[in-house]
């Protein structure tokens, strides 16, 4: 049987689909096996919702900001921000698992697949995004009981493309960072220097107008923050509207981060040069 070498060079589209499907399947399976990861992915935003939002509600007061046409309670306001933060955490966690995989050798199995590397990394990114969608929808189910609901059930469908896009952007960012992290222990630094600053300097917790009142400089930073645009894209989509600026920014940022990650993982330029015997 060994003599049956591949007859034609290259792969068919069907084989690309098989490969993508395999990577999605494996990532989902791994996620389902790691129950603690699922629980903590849910608990984190719920703590913000149940505790922080409840405590902060009086201070913030009802907020009137697009896309809302009437003032909304604080927990309604921060729900889209929390969806984005679930994805931000997941993107960083996937990047952690890539660093871990790389050191433990699992990542090698992916990288020695004969498919082109850009495809493998993009497939891996899609898999991470799929996992983040599972987390966000689980969050939305619980949030429903907390009266956080879209104007109609269609909102749950409308938010999906926004979540896919923001998931890809944040996953690509994580991937880009993971190609730059040499050792595992530096991930704590990623938490402190990436996740928290991005989260707090965005419109996840407070609208841009309010930030501007407090600090115009911070507002300027927040308006450049890709997470702000991911949050706004999700916020508008959940209200069954489109924020075109956010859409454009998220789209471009995804392309840049993913392109950067692919370049960084190219053995001719990035990662490869680091491993020594």
């Amino acid at each position: 049987m060994r003599k049956a070498a591949p007859a034609s060079p290259g792969f068919s589209l069907f084989q690309y689909a098989i490969c993508l499907n395999g990577i999605l399947w494996r990532e989902t399976l791994r996620f389902l096996h790691q129950r603690e990861r699922f629980v903590s992915a849910l608990v984190r935003p719920l703590v913000w919702l149940f505790i922080f939002a409840a405590g902060f509600r009086a201070g913030a007061g009802p907020l009137l900001t697009p896309p809302y046409t009437t003032p909304v309670p604080y927990e309604i306001y921060i729900a889209p921000g929390l969806m984005a933060v679930i994805q931000l955490f997941n993107g960083m966690q996937s990047s952690l698992s890539m660093v871990y995989d790389r050191e433990m050798g699992n990542m090698r199995i992916l990288l020695v697949s004969p498919f082109p590397r850009w495809f493998l990394l993009t497939a891996k990114l899609c898999a991470g995004t799929l996992v983040s969608l599972l987390q966000v929808y689980a969050f939305l189910v619980i949030a429903w009981f907390w009266d956080i609901r879209p104007p109609s059930l269609f909102g749950y469908v409308a938010v999906l493309p926004a979540l896919v896009l923001s998931g890809l952007m944040l996953g690509a960012l994580g991937m880009l960072l993971s190609s730059q992290i040499k050792q595992l222990e530096n991930f704590a630094g990623v938490m402190n220097f990436v996740i928290f600053p991005m989260f707090f300097a965005s419109t996840a917790l407070y609208p841009l107008i309010r930030i501007r009142e407090g600090s115009p400089k911070l507002a300027f930073v927040a308006s450049l923050n890709p997470l702000t645009h991911a949050v706004e894209l999700i916020r508008f989509a959940f209200q069954q509207q489109i924020n075109w600026l956010a859409l454009a920014v998220v789209f471009i940022a995804t392309a840049l981060f993913l392109g950067g990650a692919i370049v960084a993982y190219d053995p001719a330029r990035g990662l490869g040069a680091r491993r020594s015997e």
């Binding site: 792969f11 068919s12 069907f14 084989q15 690309y16 098989i18 490969c19 499907n21 395999g22 990577i23 399947w25 494996r26 399976l29 199995i109 992916l110 697949s113 004969p114 498919f115 493998l120």
Partner: peptide, 13 residues
């Protein structure tokens, strides 16, 4: 499952 993953990475149905 480990084998199935590898097979997918090689595009095997």
């Amino acid at each position: 499952q480990n084998l199935a993953y590898h097979a997918a990475l090689h595009g095997l149905p």
